[in-house]
């Protein structure tokens, strides 16, 4: 068989191959036939290496954006819930209860002791500086600090819960000392 014959055979085989590729490629995977090349990451028999994930490329369309904004209004977790109490604030990278937070906490404690059955969620927040993960833990610590203080004032543990939003929900969108000071806070939400 001459060179040309080999190529004709190759072409015929490729045609067969493509039929197979079309037949099996329900997942729209890129299949490749190789002559030489880098070893593949995935062992054979599994998903074809780098198989194209079933999620299509979806560039943001204006319509999708609108839909999202409309749905946003109902999503409690991404909105600051109004509070009957003032926020208390913290120093940078700190979670101890400052002197200026005590009157607010006393007021919160008095309310919860008078209104048996009321439930309070304490949200811990941070300013935008630093990394998101560490701030998530720091916000948790701030909320916990407020919870422990309220408990020490006689609020039953069953009335209190905490959640940290880290630096994800700034109340002041600014990027300066004043905004950061406002955003390092514990926020109280009656449930």
């Amino acid at each position: 068989m001459g060179k040309r014959g080999v190529w004709k055979l190759g072409a015929a085989m490729l045609a067969v191959m493509m039929v197979f590729a079309l037949g099996c490629a329900k997942k729209q995977a890129v299949k490749s036939s190789e002559t030489a090349g880098a070893p593949s990451a995935a062992p054979s028999g599994q998903q074809p290496p780098g198989g194209i994930v079933s999620e299509p490329v979806k560039p943001e369309s204006p319509a999708a954006g609108k839909q999202m904004a409309a749905a946003e209004a109902g999503a409690a977790v991404t909105k600051e819930m109004p509070s009957a109490f003032a926020d208390i604030h913290f120093d940078f990278d700190k979670s101890f209860i400052r002197e200026d937070a005590r009157p607010v906490l006393s007021q919160v404690a008095d309310y919860l002791k008078k209104n048996k059955g009321a439930k309070l969620q304490i949200e811990g927040h941070c300013d935008e500086r630093g990394t998101a993960e560490y701030n998530m833990a720091l916000g948790d610590r701030r909320a916990e600090s407020a919870r422990a203080y309220l408990a020490s004032l006689g609020v039953p543990a069953s009335a209190l819960s905490t959640v940290s939003f880290g630096k994800e929900k700034p109340v002041d969108p600014g990027h300066n000392d004043a905004a950061w000071a406002k955003n390092r806070r514990a926020h109280f939400v009656l449930k």
Binding site: A21, V30, S33, T35, A36, G37, A38, I52
Partner: peptide, 28 residues
Amino acid sequence: MMAGKRYVGPAKSYRTIAHRFANEILYA
């Protein structure tokens, strides 16, 4: 020929095909 490959896939995934062959070039 240092490397040769034939890829079959959806036309819209041509970028992935190109990236894969760039991998082959670097490997070669």
